[in-house]
Amino acid sequence: MTEHFGDRDSTPPAAGHDAPPADLAESMRLIAAGRAAAARRLQPDPRLIFWPWAFSWIISFGLYFLHYGPGGRVFVDLPGWVPGATLAATLVGAGVVAGLAGARAYRHVFGNSSIRGAMYGWTWLLGYLAMGVILGRITPDLPAPEAGLLWAAAAVGVTGLLHAAGGAIWLDRNLFALGAWITVTNLAGVLAGPGWHSLVTAVAGGGGLLVAGLLAWRRWRAVTA
């Protein structure tokens, strides 16, 4: 990064830019243009934040459902490791895409937002760490279908609560609604049992992430247009 602030004598100010706006409508247009430029550059495209996770859930939990169906049914005979490996790979991919989009938008902006974002990010990490340690201790003693259900339900549960908490932190009703939706559908999936939970997570959870991304993108586009 170079130091620009001191070299103000190097470029003469454009005299026209110091002039008042031609009329009041021009004032409003300049305000809108300044805010739009800031929103476009300083907020990531919400599709890049929500949709990678949506695709990860739809594809991976779809594969879980097809291979580990309700009552032990096998709709599509895949190698047993495929759904888990797909989930791991797509989650990492989603993290990279969403992380890069966020980092690109928030770079060189410092202060309360970055502190808030960092604490929120660490909370996700702590949530998954706690879940992994607790379930790793317990699930070896459970039958495979129940162990799988417990892992999936706990992971989706952490995700739902943190989305809802994100809504509280950023006063974002859609984000809170997404968190509540994921939490409620997760519980419905658990009550329905192993196999069904995968289908519910793929369709309702992944679909919820898709819709949330679409709504956030439309709001973002309205501000940045």
């Binding site: 990064m1 026209g16 430029a37 902006v109 309360n112």
Partner: peptide, 26 residues
């Protein structure tokens, strides 16, 4: 504020969350 360039500058800065600072080149 009622100057074309400064209006854009202030409008853009107002879009930052209160308490946030942005680097000059950005």
């Amino acid at each position: 504020i009622h100057a074309q360039a400064r209006l854009r500058v202030v409008a853009a800065l107002s879009a930052l969350t209160s308490g946030d600072r942005i680097a000059f080149p950005r």
